[in-house]
Each structure stands twice: as structure tokens, then as C-alpha cells.
Design a protein around this nucleic acid. Structure first.
Lengths: 139, 139
DNA sequence: CCATTGCTTAGAAGTTCATCGAAGCAAGCA
DNA sequence: TGCTTGCTTCGATGAACTTCTAAGCAATGG
């Protein structure tokens, strides 16, 4: 049995009001952070590419730029402008992020828009974070 | 002002005893998750190697094995036995993790023991996780 | 229909990385 | 002292990665 806490809310709350979001039995993907039980080889093979996708300064910044953009989505032209790299290079990095499942995109008229998939990032965060399964229930 | 909470302790504590570890003003590296404001280039350059260190199936499993081991530390011989790889390869991966600051080691007699540095993992988790500043105060 | 702009794909060059075998060092033991 | 075990360092090899230029495709506008 786990005490699952929504960390998003903690800082805005009295310390006497911690919410119990999920007190059920965890399933494999949900409540097994790195430190609870050893990762199987297949799990590691599945998870490592997610971290590899963000293991690059350009892609980390791209992800951050997309995540921060108001409206939740960003045009490629805005992203390209933020770097000292050619458009093909930015396009390559966006493709890596998209193939990892961290972002998604859509063409609307002339421009292509990208947005992040927060549930995947939340899963990664929960995996390496302290033994709190909060927010790891998706994907 | 941020209320930074040591999540490692929460599950073992009454919910009326949350420790306030740091209520000071955050410095740049502390409380700015990916989605709050765009990562600067220097921040990205500093953070990407941390994710690169765990962006490998072998290193993910090594980290998990070390984190799970009772007593909090693991002998290299136990780690090597868990993989189908030669000792030099395991040693190489441990070195990568150590140089990234994710683990530390000490020789005691014949054996070398490794243990994880949870505050670094917590910082990484907080960076990519939902907009909660908890636990990002170290490193 | 052709020209322009926005973005992606293709292909190549240089670099980094994972892995191994061989060799080295450190500690314990005969 | 010399042998054995545990782990690391060294050096090499083949694969993967980042970046670029050139070329291609999609949409808009004259």
C-alpha cells in the first residue's frame, strides 16, 4: 500500500491537508520507481531511449521552450530562432523527441506546431524521483 | 519563497510532521522545472550530461540495482553478476555514473562499494516533473 | 503556373560511445 | 615473497550521434 501524494498541490496547501490520491495496489508501470525494485532488462531497454531523447542540451532546451510556450504549442520557426543551428538540425532534434514520444506535432497551413506530452515526462520523473508514485499512472 | 519538502521521508512519516528543509529564496538551479521558464543554454549544457548518464539500459539497471540494494550500497561483484557483460564494461558504466555525480564509491578491503546520491536524482526528477519545486534544492 | 517561404529528408563528415581483450593495481593469503 | 582475486585503466573497433549542405515537399501568393 502506498501513500500517493500529488506534489503539485503541496506548496499551496497547509501541511495538515495532504491529499491521498491513490491508496490502491500499484501496477508495474505505476508505482515502481528506480529504488523500489531492480529494473528488468526489458524495462530498462524501453525506458533508456526516453532519457536519451532529453540527454542533449539542444533537445532539453527545445523541450523547455515548447513546454513554456503559452498556448502549449510552438511553431518551429520560433524554435529555430532560439538557436545558433540550421533548420535541418532543429528538425532532426524535434524528430528525435517526437519518435521518443515526448512531443507531438501537426501542420496547420504554412506552419508546423509542436506540443509536449506531459504524461510521458511525468512517468520519467516518477521513475527517477523519490519513492512517490504520484503522477506516474499514465503511459 | 518555496516550501521544499524531503519526499524521501514522507512515506515513513505522519502527515503532520512534514519537515521544512529549506524555505529560503531559490537559486536559479533550484526551483525552475522545465515548463516554468525556458532553460538557458548554460543550464541545458549543465543538465544534459546528467540525463545522458542514465540514458543507457545498462546504466539504468545499475542505478536501480544500487538503489534497491539493502544497506544502500552494493559491491561491484554483485553488479557484474547481474549482466552479461565483462567486468571492464561494468566498470566503465559505473565510472560514467560516478563522473555524472549520480553515485559514489569507496574501497573497503578487497571490495569496492557503490551507493547512489539521491539528491541528484531528485533534482533531475523535479526538473522534468510537474511544476513542483520540491526536492530541487540540492546540487 | 511559377516564385517564395517553411519545414523535412537525404547523404556525408567528424565526433562520441559501448564493448571487448590485455594489462595494471590493490588487497588478502600461503 | 609470490600467487590469487577483485576491480580499473588502456587501447582498439565498430556503431551511433550531431551537424552541415543540398535537395525535396507543402502551402501561399502573384
Amino acid at each position: 500500500m502506498w501513500l500517493c501524494i500529488d506534489l503539485c498541490q503541496i506548496r499551496d496547501m497547509s501541511k495538515h491537508e495532504l491529499p491521498i490520491i491513490d491508496a490502491g495496489v500499484p501496477d508495474a508501470a505505476c508505482c515502481a520507481p528506480l529504488a523500489c525494485e531492480p529494473l528488468s532488462e526489458s524495462e530498462a531497454v524501453e525506458l533508456a531511449p526516453l532519457f536519451k531523447a532529453i540527454a542533449d542540451p539542444v533537445r532539453l532546451r527545445l523541450l523547455s521552450l515548447i513546454a513554456c510556450h503559452e498556448g502549449g504549442e510552438t511553431c518551429v520557426c520560433d524554435l529555430t530562432a532560439a538557436f545558433d543551428l540550421t533548420p535541418p538540425t532543429i528538425s532532426h532534434h524535434l524528430k528525435v523527441l517526437k519518435q521518443a514520444g515526448l512531443i507531438d506535432s501537426e501542420r496547420r497551413g504554412t506552419w508546423v506546431y509542436y506540443w509536449i506530452k506531459p504524461e510521458v515526462l511525468a512517468r520519467m520523473s516518477a521513475l527517477i524521483g523519490p519513492a512517490s508514485p504520484a503522477l506516474a499512472g499514465t503511459a
